[in-house]
Write a protein that binds this DNA or RNA. Structure first.
Length: 419
RNA sequence: GGAUAGGUGGCUGAGUGGUCUAAAGCAACAGUCUUGAAAACUGUCGUCCGCGCAAGUGGACCGUGAGUUCGAAUCUCACCCUAUCCGCCA
C-alpha cells in the first residue's frame, strides 16, 4: 500500500508506474475520491468540535440551559449521522482502490509484458555437452527409483509425486547444506506455520487478486504458498527495536500452490507441483532506499553463490514491469539450466518492496530521531525442492544413467554417485 | 467439541456514563552527580489525520463493527482474537 499523501504529490509517477506494470487504475479518479473524503472529514470534524464544546458545558449548566443545549445537540447529532454515513460509503471505495494501487517499479526495471521480456543480466557456468543421448529428469529419476509419479498421482492426483530412496536423501542433503550455508550468512532459521490467516495474504500483497490461487481450509484460513507470508506476519503490529535491524530470517516451510489456470503448463515432472518445500530469505531493514537496494543485491547474490557452489549453470534475469507483482519495486530471477528442455527454469525470485508490505502489516521501528517509520521488507528464495533436482540430475547425468553428486553435497549425501 | 476469563499507549496495569486532557510503574531519551559507567535524583515522553511558515490548534483512536445517549474506554448486540480448564489427539 502506498501513502495517500505520496500518491497525491506524485500522481504522474504513480500512474506511470501502474502503466509500466500493466495495472489498470485511474489515479486521477482516486485523487478525486480522496478530495471528497477530505471534504467530508473536515465538515464532520467541525461538527464534532461543536458537539464536544457544548457537551463539556452540559453537566454544569442550569436546568433550563441544560435542556436547551440537549435539544440543540439533537439537531447537530442528526446532521452528523448523515454525513458519517456518506463518509462511510466514500471510505469503502477509497480503501478498495488503495489496495489496488501498485508500488512503483524502479527506473532500472525494463518495459515489457511478460517473462519473455525479462532481461538477462548475468550468465554463469558451462552448459554440459553430452556425447550420449541425454535423458530428462523424469526418466533419470524414475529409473533410479528417486521419484514415483504414478503412485504420486494415484494418491495425490494430478501433479502428485513421491520422492523415494535417493530422491528423498538428496532432498535432505540439500536442506542440510542450505541450513549450513545460510546460517553462516547470519540468517536466523525459522520453521513458520503455513496455515495462515487470510489477512496476511493481503498484508504481503498476494491479495487482492485471485483467491482461487490458494488452498483454503474450511475455517477460512489459507495454506501459504511461501514462507514469506508467515514470516512477514510474524512481526505485524509490532514496533521493532532499530538496533535489531536488519532482521534476516531463513524460513523453511512446505509451500502450497493451487496452480489454478495453469493446467496445460509443465504437465510432467517436478517443475510445477502443488506442494513443495522451500528455504526463503526474508529481511526487514531500515526505511532507506539505499539499504533496500544493497540488501536486495546481497540476498540475490547469496542464492547465486549457493547455486555456484553446486556447480549448476544458471543465468540471472531482471524482471520487466509486466512480470512484477503489485508490491514489488524490482525483482531478479535466478534460472537454472535444464539441458533436456534446452532452456533455463526459474528457481529463485529476489524482490524488494520498500514499505509497501510493512504499511499493510503495520511493522514499524523507531529511528534515531525517535520517529516511527515503516520498515522495508525484502525476500528471496534460497532454495526450492524438488524443483532444483530437475537441473541437478539433468546436468550431472552420465552416459550410464547414473548421477554425479556435486562435491558440496557429498558429505551430506554420504556418496558421490547415485546409481 | 464443552466451560470460563479476558483484550487499555513500546511493555505491565488502574479506570464501570460527564475536569479521561487515560492513573501508576517499567522501558526509552535528556540533565545533575561521576575519571567513566552503574545507582540515585530531576525533567521529557502515545499514535494517526486535518489546518497553520511556526508557536499552535481541531479531530480520531482503549480488539473490530453496529447500537443506546446531548455525551461512551465505561452500557447493549454481533464478530474477531488470546488465555485457562475438561474432552479428543500426533
Amino acid at each position: 500500500m502506498l501513502d495517500i499523501k505520496f500518491i497525491r504529490e506524485n500522481k504522474d509517477i504513480v500512474q506511470a508506474g501502474a502503466q509500466k506494470k500493466h495495472v489498470k487504475i485511474d489515479i486521477a479518479e482516486l485523487v478525486a475520491l480522496d478530495d471528497k473524503r477530505k471534504e467530508a472529514l473536515t465538515s464532520i470534524e467541525k461538527k464534532r468540535a461543536e458537539q464536544n464544546a457544548i457537551s463539556e458545558k452540559i453537566p454544569t449548566a442550569s436546568a433550563e440551559d441544560r435542556q436547551k443545549m440537549i435539544n440543540d445537540m439533537k439537531v447537530v447529532k442528526e446532521a452528523l449521522q448523515k454525513e458519517e454515513d456518506s463518509l462511510k460509503e466514500i471510505m469503502k471505495s477509497w480503501q478498495d482502490m488503495m489496495l489496488r494501487v501498485p508500488n512503483i517499479p524502479d527506473m532500472s526495471v525494463p518495459e515489457g509484458d511478460s517473462d519473455k521480456d525479462n532481461k538477462e543480466i548475468k550468465e554463469w557456468g558451462e552448459k554440459p555437452k553430452f556425447d550420449f543421448e541425454a535423458k530428462d529428469h523424469v526418466e533419470l529419476m524414475t529409473k533410479l527409483a528417486m521419484v514415483d509419479f504414478e503412485r504420486g498421482s494415484k494418491v495425490h492426483g494430478f501433479r502428485g509425486y513421491f520422492l523415494t530412496g535417493d530422491g528423498a536423501r538428496l532432498s535432505f542433503a540439500i536442506w542440510q547444506y542450505a541450513m549450513d550455508f545460510f546460517s553462516a550468512k547470519k540468517f536466523i532459521p525459522v520453521i513458520p506455520p503455513t496455515i495462515v490467516r487470510k489477512q496476511f495474504l493481503y498484508g504481503t500483497a498476494h491479495l487482492p487478486g485471485d483467491v482461487e490461487d490458494f488452498y483454503m481450509t474450511q475455517d477460512g484460513d489459507a495454506l501459504a504458498g511461501t514462507a514469506e507470508v508467515p514470516l512477514m506476519g510474524m512481526h505485524s503490529e509490532e514496533v521493532l527495536d532499530a538496533k535489531e535491524l536488519p532482521k534476516r530470517y531463513l524460513g523453511f516451510s512446505p509451500c502450497y500452490r493451487r496452480e489454478a489456470g495453469a493446467h496445460s503448463k509443465d504437465v510432467k515432472g517436478l517443475i510445477r507441483v502443488h506442494e513443495f518445500y522451500k528455504f526463503e530469505q526474508l529481511v526487514l531493514c531500515e526505511a532507506s532506499h539505499e539499504t533496500s537496494v544493497a540488501v536486495h543485491e546481497e540476498i540475490n547474490r547469496n542464492t547465486e553463490e549457493f547455486i555456484e557452489s553446486l556447480g549448476i549453470p544458471y543465468h540471472t534475469v531482471l524482471n520487466c514491469g509486466g512480470d512484477l507483482g503489485l508490491g514489488q519495486v524490482k525483482k531478479y530471477d535466478v534460472e537454472l539450466w535444464v539441458p533436456k528442455e534446452n532452456t533455463y527454469r526459474e528457481i529463485s525470485s529476489a524482490s524488494y518492496f520498500h514499505d509497501f508490505q510493512t504499511r499493510r502489516l503495520n511493522i514499524r521501528y523507531k529511528d534515531a530521531e525517535g520517529k516511527l517509520r515503516y520498515a522495508h521488507s525484502l525476500n528471496c528464495t534460497a532454495i526450492p525442492t524438488p524443483r532444483i533436482l530437475v537441473s541437478l540430475v539433468e546436468n550431472f547425468q552420465q552416459a550410464d544413467g547414473t548421477i554425479r553428486i556435486p562435491e558440496a553435497l557429498q558429505k551430506y549425501m554420504g556418496k558421490a554417485i547415485i546409481s
